[in-house]
Amino acid sequence: MAQIFRKSANNIAKISMVSVVLLAGVGFYAWTQLARSSYLTGQYLEIQQPVQFSHKHHVGDDGIDCRYCHQTVETTASAGMPSTQTCMNCHSQLWADAPYLEPIRASFRDNKPIQWNRVHDLPEYVYFNHSIHIAKGVGCSTCHGPVDKMPTVYEENTLQMEWCIQCHREPEKFIRPRSEVFNMAYRPDDTDQATRDQLKVDYKIRSREMLTSCSTCHR
């Protein structure tokens, strides 16, 4: 009886077994990369807005403090968005006829809010709160990057769980003195590690176990 499989079939069988494992490995790796890619996390994607509002001009060039517009960032979960009236504090006088500010004036006239498109948007099963991070010395730029240099805001970080966790494990590597939280020119090595360790104690930052426990963020 003729043999169905020649001897070389052994090799084919071995190669296919190895390649299944390899393919699975490569596939898994590709998936982890894809899941972290900016295509899926939105990192670095510039979002267009109804008004060409520029943080670079307002914060970088004119030196307006974040809290002038994001008023509730120290006190509530949400950072707060400026009302149209806040824009009109200046733009009722300044560039009051500029055509690209017309949506602002229309919003003010008609009492209709401007609809900004979200840049950062966590899934709603995650609880995030700005005020505690501000109170414990996490700077805006640690999470949002150099906003004062952004003509259009983009996401500096992935906002994935692993990003939150890498800080919650070792907050002492990231915190800064409270007085520097809003300082966009601050660099992480402006404070040495010993001082940061002390800040962690002074600010009563809780243990790694507490901060990485699931119910801290999924409540």
Binding site: Q85, N111, P113
Partner: peptide
């Protein structure tokens, strides 16, 4: 006291997302 976002009186305009 902490201020609730956009819920204090008539001066609030806009800011919806």
């Amino acid at each position: 006291k902490p201020q609730a976002p956009a819920a204090n009186g008539a001066t609030n305009k806009g800011g919806a997302k």
